[in-house]
Amino acid sequence: MSAIQVIPLNWYLLLSTVLFTIGVLGVLFRRNAIIIFMSIELMLNAVNLLFVAFSSYLSDSKGQVFVFFIMAVAAAEVAVGLAILMMVYRNTKTTDINILNKLKW
């Protein structure tokens, strides 16, 4: 029995759900683009946690493979996303999404 399995699965589920909810709420209620970004990362990591936990409990390595995938994609996303945010900030001097609403109608 590995270290992970010492803690019952429910706790992982609970933690993951809490993290995910925090992420969602962050995305919904914060207006700073960078914080929204971080919230998204939080949601991704909540999912990652879940993947790892299940992988361990089910003794199936597929879940961990997915985690690596998600991390790679998240990294790429952060790179591109932060670059976009940089450009937005340089041009508008703000990262408030309520002000960044030019793309409409």
């Binding site: 995305v27 919904l28 207006r31 999404i97 309520n98 609403n101 030019k102 793309l103 409409k104 109608w105």
Partner: peptide
Amino acid sequence: LVQTGNIGFYIFVMV
């Protein structure tokens, strides 16, 4: 008109 341009609104609708 649904396309308000407000990201927060989009995300809200999505969720």
